[in-house]
């Protein structure tokens, strides 16, 4: 149904979106555990220790995965929220324009975060 997917759903498939959201949630949960674990077992938390930990190739890849997962997860979620609430029923005829602005804002923020994070992790 092209009509309902219009511009912006991530995959245009409800099932794929649904799966991506759940898989990315698992990635983020694992990543959180991993980082929390590191913080807990490390006695002397210095900048050098952090650089050392996040600078390993394994962690660089894992962090990249986590950042991309955050972006995908957030986009699906924010897109859904936008299509639920920003509707002509509540916002009148300007709803479409408003939603476009909102979605553009989301894309921009997510893009900035991803770029910034990648730059950070790969320049360590």
């Amino acid at each position: 149904m092209a009509l309902v997917t219009n511009v912006t759903s991530l995959t245009r498939s409800g099932l794929a979106d649904f799966l991506i959201q759940r898989i990315t949630a698992v990635v983020l949960a694992l990543y959180t555990l991993c980082v929390l674990g590191f913080l807990l077992v490390t006695d002397n938390l210095s900048h050098a220790a952090l650089v050392d930990y996040f600078g390993s190739m394994g962690m660089r890849l894992f962090s990249t995965m986590a950042v991309l997962s955050t972006a995908a997860h957030a986009w699906i979620g924010m897109w859904t929220v936008g299509t639920d609430y920003i509707r002509p029923h509540y916002f009148g005829t300007g709803a479409t324009v408003f939603r476009f602005v909102y979605q553009s804002g989301c894309v921009l923020i997510l893009f900035v975060y991803v770029a910034w994070a990648l730059q950070l992790f790969w320049s360590l």
Binding site: M1, V4, R12, S13, L15, F18, T80, D84
Partner: peptide
Amino acid sequence: SKLDDPFSVFR
């Protein structure tokens, strides 16, 4: 296949 869009079922 008619149900697999982001709205019909997955909302």
